[in-house]
Amino acid sequence: MRVYRSADFLTRVAWLLAGLCAALLSAGAGAAAATAAVTLASTTSTDNSGLYDYLLPKFTADTGIRVRVIAVGTGRALSIGRRGDADLLIVHDRESELEFVADGHGVARVPFMYNDYVLVGPRADPGGLRAAGDVVHAMRLIARGRRPFISRGDDSGTHKKELQLWRAAGLAPGAADAWYREAGAGMGAVLNLANELVAYTLTDRSTWVSFNNRAALALLVENQPPLHNPYSAILVNPQKHPAVNHRAARRLVEWLTSRRGLDWIDNYRVRGVRLFHPLRGG
């Protein structure tokens, strides 16, 4: 008797669980299928600075197309694009962008806005970077003084720029240098680290300005040609990856590079600072 009753109950529980799964799963599938949204794999700086929260609703209002943003480093964004898992990329490393397009994964690479990198570090600036003037010289001062420096170490656009600067300085800091620490993390995590360890680091200006945990840090070196930071939009090649939402992604690029889109970018401010400058007629 007992065995039977328990079995009945368990069967009912099993049906209940199965029903729950089906209901919750179908709700999710419905939401996913209903949207012919553009999936945008983008560098973190543009997302963390709030640019997309400001810009993309305007695009959606103009066109009815929703945009889903996956914020990752440039290296990761390109790898997502290589697998066809995004429709559009917004990234910032010229060399790997060109390679991505040359390999046939991307079409229509369009540089459409820029900002710049800055060197930040301890407020007291023990390395004397403020007086260095030149950014390449500033990198030498960090290495010469063995000042703590946090590297992104994550194959992002900012990481690649940092390696470029070391190369320009004729240096290649690595595991043997105790002052040089590779975080393998995003810009925000690295700024948290630099703030805690009172260390120097390279960051894009947009993340720096919108970052909220930087009491120990100050902006030390800025406004120099090697620190130029252009962002490009790259459409993932629909011939290579037929499942991408190419048409809607193309409309987003057209909108971003239109006068209207560029004006919106130009008008974006965080704490009164303009974070991104449009590249017009490029």
Partner: peptide, 20 residues
């Protein structure tokens, strides 16, 4: 679930179903 993976055609990557 990646488009380049065996279950790519289902289009489940970056959806709640993938997380489930």
């Amino acid at each position: 679930l990646s488009r380049a993976g065996p279950l790519g055609p289902l289009g489940l990557l970056y959806t709640p179903v993938a997380m489930i």
